[in-house]
Amino acid sequence: MLVINGPTDDSGHQDPGHPERPDRVTAVMAGIADLHLGSDLVVAPEYSATRAELTRVHEGGYLDELDMFCYEGGGDLDEDTYATYKSWSIARFAAGAGISAVDTLRQRNDGVAFVVTRPPGHHALRDRAMGFCLLNNIAVTAAKLTSEGERVLIIDWDVHHGNGTQSIFWNDPNVLYVSTHQWPLFPGSGTPREIGGLDAMGLTLNIPLPPGATGDVVRQAIDEAATPVIEKFGPTWVLVSAGFDAHRDDPMADLKLTSGDFAELGRMAFGFAPRPGRLALFLEGGYDLAALQGSVAATLSSMLGGEYQPESPSSGGPGSEMVFRARAERVLALRQAEEVPTDQDRVI
């Protein structure tokens, strides 16, 4: 069973020529339609995040400023990120969609959720929009879950490092953040030496990958570097920042994944969930519409036990050595942190 969020009209959040555009959601929905799920497709109620839910991860002052900025007509927040008159409302629905989807999973105690919203969220910091992101959608849901006593694994396979999510949970012992991403690339954070704050040492895990890396390297990174940490952490929920801009056709980066690789990643994420109904994906990046449609369909199909896979998994690219080095750097950072703990307690 696949749970998706209720339809929100996001057409009011767009900027002519900007790659983060409403057509992306259309492509994702086309990918879901390709699976012909019938009654196995469940729609969670539309839900707008409350201020109390947002202030678990964002500063109240930032929320007020964003609200006011949009009310006055919006504009460019930085060279990448825009907001319109309607963005505040749309972003709150995007931030609330995950909460609604998780509630639906809980009621049914089964299935996988895919939160198909925009704008994306994983770059949004506590007090700042950036990288096309206004509110950190996955963080809002993760914080709601931890407030209820859950232990949350966040896997971020977007091609860009999720600096906002990392920063928000830097010192949270109930969240394990795992990211694979191209390096170097925006936003410039995400080194293996970033391991978490004093109360969550080791609960940030970054595996940077070089341009040209293929799916086998990403799988190696998850298998060798992340799986032991995830198993030790023991998540009760798994959330995925599911960007699809690591696809070889995506214009925003240089990784060489195929839709078949995303199917493999989906299978791995599914395996980390402790039981059915404890896995939710959140749309982040992905800007080539055909690649997005095929990758979404392949990912969800693999999680639902289907065989839809328009492209084979890729292999043979560089990065194996970088994964090895990342593990070594992380071990060193953890060792140094134990020796001089106060030096590590900083948000990067």
Partner: peptide, 15 residues
């Protein structure tokens, strides 16, 4: 470039 006067939001210098 593209920053708005008086807003903490989007202001590199204030941040």
């Amino acid at each position: 470039q593209g920053e708005h006067a008086g807003l903490l939001l989007g202001s590199t210098s204030l941040q």
